[in-house]
Amino acid sequence: MGIANVAALIACALAMGLGALGAGLGLGNVARASLRSMARQPAKDPEFFRYMLVGQAITETPAIFALVVSFLLYFAGGRALEAPNSPAQSLMFLSAGLCMGIGALGSGIGSGLVAKEALEGMSRYPSSQGQLAILMMIGQAWTQTGGIFALVISLFMLNGGGFNQLSGANDPLLWGSIPISAGEILGIARFAGAGIAMGFGAVGSSVGIAYIGCSACRSLADVPEAGQRIKSAYFIGSATAQSPSVFALIIALILLIRG
């Protein structure tokens, strides 16, 4: 059991914990909105229940991504590593976990907000139910794009992205007493930087796109006849709001790939 195994297990816990935090908040919001809608229109109970289940199933997606990453981290921590005492490899695991956890935080909260707004719109204007359901799913899916980028970066790190090029193993040790080499120092910085860039980069865009989704659902419920134009503004607007997280993805990939 080396420091890297411990780091992998800590990262496993962090990824799942943070991922479940965001999804939990989102799921609660969806359930609250559906209960409120049911109270407003008791005759439509089964429909609201169905839409609540669909909305929750999609809201849960970031938590499932976090589960995938933490499962892989758990196995990475359990099995014997090639370099159990390498600080760079420990940072790789920690950073992969944190990246996925923080990335899932924003998308979990955001997709819950979108579903909440759509469900409340359905209760106010039952005639636009079908249109709102489709917009809700699209909005939730787009909110989760940041979480998916975080998943991509985490999986890339866990599959040894960049770690193979580490020249740490054979370098002369720099500090006499502290066993760390130049390659290890660079590796630590590279993994930590990539994780922070992608993790936090995903949050802003996710919450921003969730806000667009909320507004679009509310507007579509209020003014269904302007649906085509609202959708067009929504699609283009969220494609543009996506770009900060795309920048973060680029930087994270550059940090990981550049050996």
């Binding site: 922070i196 860039a197 992608m198 993790g199 936090f200 980069g201 949050v203 802003g204 865009s205 996710s206 919450v207 921003g208 796109i209 969730a210 806000y211 667009i212 909320c214 507004s215 679009a216 503004a233 929504y234 283009i236 607007g237 969220s238 543009t240 709001a241 770009s243 900060p244 997280s245 920048f247 973060a248 930087i251 994270a252």
Partner: peptide, 17 residues
């Protein structure tokens, strides 16, 4: 990049919303 994209992401979302 991580913290620099927090604000613009939120702000662009607010504008489009």
């Amino acid at each position: 990049m991580g913290f620099g994209s927090l604000g613009p992401g939120l702000g662009e979302g607010y504008a489009a919303g």
